Amino acid sequence: MATKLLSIFMLCVALILVLLEPNQGASTVETLAFQQQHQGDYQPYGTTQGSLRPQECAPRCTSRCSATAYKKPCLFFCQKCCAKCLCVPPGTYGNKQVCPCYNNWKTKRGGPKCP
């Protein structure tokens, strides 16, 4: 959701620049095309494996566990997973595919270990 808002914002800024400076329009359009091409390459900081420092786990996990009714176990396992994987998926639920280590760590019974 945040990446969609960011891309809409970038598109609006680029369009405003094109309209305000017609002499520079071609380079702005080329820049916009480059940004849209590589938009899929963008990974927010902290969501790719190994991109966090251990001291950054607590605030990320607090955010991740903010919507659950089971805060203590969520925070415990999230921080354990973050310490191992050094990443926390964005949002309060799902999105685990951006951090394979976090996603693939399983309990003894085969269920997901990380919230």
Rank of each mutant, 00 (worst) to 15 (best):
D41P: 01
C12Q: 13
S51D: 14
T31S: 11
G40P: 00
A67P: 01
L15S: 00
G50S: 05
G50C: 03
Q49S: 06
Q79E: 14
M10A: 09
Q39T: 04
A67Y: 14
I8L: 14
L32R: 06
A58Q: 10
T68S: 05
D41F: 01
Y70S: 15
K71A: 08
A58G: 05
Q49R: 12
L75Y: 01
F77T: 14
C81I: 02
L52G: 13
L32Q: 05
D41M: 07
T68W: 02
T47S: 09
C74P: 05
L20A: 15
T62I: 08
Q55I: 09
E21A: 05
G46R: 04
E30W: 00
Y70D: 15
L19G: 12
S51V: 00
G25P: 00
S27I: 07
Q49L: 01
D41C: 10
V13T: 09
C85S: 07
L32D: 00
P73S: 12
P44N: 03
R60F: 15
Y45L: 01
S27F: 12
T31L: 10
Y70V: 11
K72D: 13
P22L: 03
L6R: 00
E56P: 07
T48A: 12
A26W: 03
G25A: 14
S63T: 12
T31H: 06
C82G: 05
M10Q: 06
V29T: 04
P54A: 11
N23V: 12
T28V: 15
D41W: 02
